[in-house]
Design a protein around this nucleic acid. Sequence first.
DNA 1: AAGGCGTGGTA
DNA 2: TTACCAAGCCT
Length: 369
Amino acid sequence: MLDIKINQQQIEMLQTDLLKWFEKAKRDLPFRQTRNPYYIWISEIMAQQTQIDTLIPYYNRFIATFPTVFSLAQASVDEVIKTWEGLGYYSRARNLHQAAQIIVSDYEGNMPETFAKLLKLPGIGPYTGGAIASIAFNEKVSAVDGNVLRVISRYGNSFDDIGDAKTKKRMTAFIEGILPDAAGDFNEALMELGAVICTPQSPKCLICPIRSGCQSHAAGTTEQLPVKKKKTKQLTKKMEVGIVKQNSCLFFVRRPDSGLLSGLWSFPITETVAGHGQDIKKKLAENFHELNEPIFIGTNRHVFSHIVWEMSIYGFDLDNAIREPVSTSHLVSNQAHTRTDYQFKALSEIDDLALPVAFSKLLDQLTNF
DNA sequence: AAGGCGTGGTA
DNA sequence: TTACCAAGCCT
């Protein structure tokens, strides 16, 4: 149970030390050069489960493509996903798009200015709501992310599992109790400290601005903290991928509306049962009447957060079909939807599609096919 | 409550 | 190679 004994004077020293350090040491990040709530919002959504260094080029590209909430709301969801391509957790982009439409329709295009209202928007939870409210609107509310949980675990020498909701509640309450008026800066300072000083491995206690009050440093337990329950191991799935070629074009399918990589484009893919390319050949029979035997191209492995795909890649060259060449008119198109679910694309056109890394990385293996 | 949901970096 | 981790949210 987190139980930090800290008096008013110590609280003020902690605030002062942290804020002073942050003012001096904070990294120069693109979204720290603005107070525009729209830009803050985009950056905070991108920051979810994503390291800052990774998201910076995406952030710059995103706000260049969608400079205002109106431009985002008016874009198609496919355009938004395409701009998000490669960043992962694509529901973030869908929620961003949906929330932009709500902000335009319900708030005249102005970002809602309170934690309570922000929390109602899709994709904004306790952390992101607190971050936007405190950083963009000076609301005195906490923003507790993984960095903050780690910093507080160590500061109070807490061995509570930070994956437990109760622990997060307690630590949030502690933060709320020591929040200064400059809540946005204080929240950012805690996160910055976690990102560059109070790191998961080998924390740099020697140069930590709040070392003097840190109970974990005093107890020598920093390497054991924070306590976090281990994740269950990823399930490995054997998959067969079908590369269908005709007239130098490759065949792509849109993934289902729900689940992994939903709505994004992919090569036809199916879980391996019989093997040797027969599973994907059977699946492709939904789209093509005549197919040659699969040509083995190679293997590839892709690791998601909770699944591993071990992919065997098979080619089907329609130009070299033994029987009559099959034209695109044989494609089964889904008449119920106005959007397209199947497409042949020339190599130069593939960039039009939002293609997850799991598939875009396969393109390198197709040079001899 | 616990698991689904991406990707890239590091030890 | 394996394992862990990153400015979480949704169901």
